[in-house]
Computed example of a mutant assay.
Amino acid sequence: MSLEIVPFQKKYTEAFYNLNVEWLETFFYVEDFDKEVLSQPDKYIINPGGHIFFAVEDNLVLGTVALMKAGDNSFELTKMAVLPNQRGKRIGQQLMQHCIDFGKTQGFEKLFLYSNTKLENAIYIYRKYGFIEIPVEENSPYKRSNIKMELYLS
């Protein structure tokens, strides 16, 4: 079976939560803000105009990513996570490319993201896709973030 990237469906809410919590617990810790957003993705991401995508193969969710609306044409690329036994198979890169292509077709001006420099592979991939580093604002929503990057789509 081939990998498909599909938009948010209610049936994937639990997978969205579990994938992200596992990833956060592996590399950092789960903040209250995370639990709130992850447990109600329709309320915090979809309803305000955002998007969530899933990498699915044989009805199994292998990975996920979200685009949270931040402004008229600005979206935060966030909540990207891949099953531990599926990492290294370029699923994250396929999700990233899907978000970039989707953003371009939707007329988004830019994507931005928060990360941490200890995630060297992730930072490398963001740069490979054209993201450039910009200053992290003092009131950043994530305590664990020490790098912010953006990509202009238009």
Rank of each mutant, 00 (worst) to 15 (best):
Glu36Phe: 11
Glu36Lys: 14
Leu38Arg: 04
Ser39Lys: 13
Gln40Tyr: 13
Pro41Tyr: 02
Pro41Ser: 05
Pro41His: 06
Asp42Ala: 13
Asp42His: 13
Lys43Ala: 07
Tyr44Leu: 00
Tyr44Glu: 02
Tyr44His: 10
Ile45Phe: 00
Ile45Lys: 00
Ile45Cys: 02
Ile46Val: 00
Pro48Ala: 05
Pro48Ile: 01
Pro48Glu: 05
Gly49Thr: 01
Gly50Leu: 01
His51Ala: 11
His51Lys: 15
His51Val: 02
His51Thr: 09
Ile52Leu: 08
Ile52Gln: 01
Phe53Cys: 11
Phe53Asn: 05
Ala55Gln: 11
Ala55Gly: 13
Val56Asn: 02
Val56Cys: 01
Asp58Ile: 10
Asp58Cys: 11
Asp58Ser: 15
Asn59His: 12
Leu62Ser: 04
Leu62Cys: 01
Gly63Asp: 01
Thr64Gln: 01
Val65Leu: 09
Ala66His: 01
Leu67Glu: 10
Ala70Gln: 13
Asp72Ala: 14
Asn73Leu: 15
Asn73His: 14
Ser74Arg: 14
Ser74Thr: 15
Glu76Met: 10
Glu76Ala: 08
Thr78Ile: 15
Ala81Met: 14
Ala81Ser: 15
Ala81Val: 14
Val82Ser: 12
Val82His: 06
Leu83Met: 11
Leu83His: 10
Gln86Thr: 08
Arg87Pro: 06
Lys89Asp: 11
Lys89Asn: 14
Arg90Trp: 07
Arg90Phe: 09
Ile91Thr: 08
Gly92Leu: 04
Gln93His: 09
Gln94Met: 13
Gln94Thr: 13
Leu95Phe: 02
Leu95Ile: 00
Met96Ile: 00
Met96Leu: 04
Gln97Cys: 09
His98Arg: 10
Cys99Thr: 08
Cys99Val: 00
Ile100Thr: 00
Asp101Met: 07
Asp101Lys: 09
Thr105Gln: 13
Thr105Gly: 03
Gln106Phe: 06
Gly107Glu: 03
Phe108Lys: 00
Phe108Ala: 12
Phe108Met: 14
Glu109Lys: 14
Glu109His: 14
Leu111Ser: 10
Leu113Arg: 09
Tyr114Gln: 04
Tyr114Ser: 03
Tyr114Trp: 04
Thr117His: 03
Thr117Lys: 09
Thr117Ala: 00
Thr117Gly: 02
Lys118Asn: 10
Glu120Thr: 15
Asn121Phe: 08
Asn121Trp: 05
Ala122His: 08
Ala122Ile: 03
Tyr124Ala: 09
Tyr124Pro: 07
Ile125Tyr: 03
Tyr126Asn: 05
Tyr126Leu: 06
Arg127Ser: 12
Lys128Leu: 07
Gly130Ser: 04
Ile134Pro: 02
Pro135His: 02
Val136Ala: 00
Val136Tyr: 01
Val136Arg: 06
Glu138Val: 05
Asn139Gly: 07
Asn139Cys: 05
Pro141Gly: 12
Tyr142Ile: 11
Lys143Asp: 12
Lys143Ile: 13
